[in-house]
Amino acid sequence: MRQVGGAHRGLDLWLVQRVSAVYMALFLPVFWFCRAGTGYTGWHALFLGLPMKAAAALFVAALLLHAWIGLREILIDYVHPLAWRLPLYFLFALAYAGCLVWAVDILWKVQ
């Protein structure tokens, strides 16, 4: 029988994009007020604590998720052949995952 329902997808990613935007909007002003001084010592002191490390890592994760979902929307809009779209999804997912690992590595190197 022909299915008349929707794919029951789309809402989760749409919601994640909104939630990540809210987190970024909350994190950035807090980060702005927290930074004490602009010199190396100020920055170093700021990122020494675990809470800031975790919050910053979460920020990068939110940013990358937000960007990937936005990119997925653009690909669905413009790149119609699945043979092109699917590799592009994975390529960017891989690149963004690499960025996240890199950012976490940088954050946790602050000793």
Binding site: V4, G5, G6, A7, H8, R9, G10, L11, W14, E73, I76, D77
Partner: peptide
């Protein structure tokens, strides 16, 4: 409920930006 089921789709509804 059925109407929302039908609309919950990456194309039918979520192409709206």
């Amino acid at each position: 409920g059925e109407r929302l089921d039908f609309l919950e789709d990456p194309y039918r509804l979520f192409r709206c930006h």
